[in-house]
Design a protein around this nucleic acid. Structure first.
Lengths: 198, 198
DNA sequence: TGACTATACATCGATGACGATGTACTGCGG
DNA sequence: CCGCAGTACATCGTCATCGATGTATAGTCA
């Protein structure tokens, strides 16, 4: 799996897991999810759909155009559904470390059955955040914001520290609630919500 | 400029602006800067160096191997130095919105001469963060963390909100100090620090 | 009617990033 | 002396992404 190969495909699989959609609607949802940070070109989406279809992960059904041109309704196959679960349960390391990827994964983690498997993924992120890492070093030693005289580099460390603190807090409380049975999150969405249209 | 084309090249230009380096050392510095989030493959770095050389932005000077194999000392040309400044002053929109890109830009923003040009870049980020944007919507309306019942999606919004708050605070104080003359940051590094070797 | 916008999908060429693999030299431990 | 790790650079084929461009339909406003 190429480093970049995952993010878009994961989003496609994730959204289609919730409901069958056509490409244009899919694009709008992906744009809403991550578009403000990184827009997705149409010329990236349609080939990606084709790729997933070729791999047998989704099926296409022609429909006469309700609003305009004819649509291809996209539905996940059984293998597609299994593939999403697999990608959620065993993410690449870069999907743990890169915040963009990690957020995309989080957006669909509810579709991973069983609270302990969800918790295991959160624990991987927790382990990553617990490692002492900086953007700037004095030899081996990570530098703290206070030790820099560059205000912009100070900013990087200040912001990263605040993000990390907020995320660690959220991770710990969420892990606690996942570990106490009964209150854990179940997937109440997938295949139930068929209100694809606006 | 392709969406991905900037990040690595900016880092190369940025580090070489500070001191001439050879590829291997460059790689170690880039890995220290962003490697914990997104590792850089050697097979990506060397072609990138070649690209920049071909574009006349850097020059290569052969040196007998100090530690091992012979090195290519890399130095920014005058055009290379100008190009870094240009990329810092007029970043693509995705370099403002994508945190990875933004951090890379911030790491070298000190090399942009004149405090008001630095401030103008920070203001672009400020404007982006001030726009009400979410990852999840009810039609047009951005949803708040409290409105979601998915704990993972709640996490995304919680973390993003904390990051945004910390960054806004830092942006505002830094902008204030850039606007009050005398206390503004000058570039005290570029071309002065020639201690490239460990 | 004609211009324009939104919907909906598609292809093409260019290119940057990737993993795999190769080369070659130095220094160290066993 | 041999193997291994670290240093240092390079190429190759694959592939995901991109911008540009094209096609077609439906609805809106002048």
């Amino acid at each position: 799996m190429r480093q970049n190969a995952g993010m878009l495909e994961l989003a496609i699989l994730g959204f289609l897991y919730e409901a069958p959609l056509h490409g244009y609607e899919l694009r709008k949802r992906i744009t809403a999810l991550t578009g403000h940070v990184r827009p997705v070109a149409e010329s990236t989406l349609y080939p990606a759909i084709k790729r997933l279809e070729k791999a047998g992960l989704l099926a296409r059904e022609m429909q006469p155009g309700a609003a305009a041109a004819p649509r291809h309704m996209l539905t996940l196959t059984t293998e597609g559904r299994a593939e999403l679960v697999r990608r959620l349960a065993e993410p690449e390391q870069v999907e743990i470390t890169d915040e963009n990827r990690w957020f995309t994964l989080l957006a669909f983690l509810r579709h991973l059955p069983e609270a302990d498997r969800q918790a295991e993924v959160l624990r991987r992120r927790l382990r990553f955040l617990d490692e002492p890492a900086s953007f700037f070093y004095d030899g081996e030693r990570p530098l703290r914001a206070e030790e820099l005289d560059d205000p912009f580099r100070q900013g990087i460390l200040t912001i990263a520290r605040a993000t990390s603190a907020a995320e660690l807090k959220w991770l710990r409380t969420t892990l606690r609630s996942l570990e106490s049975p009964g209150t854990g999150s179940r997937d109440v969405t997938g295949a139930t919500d068929l209100t694809a249209e606006a």
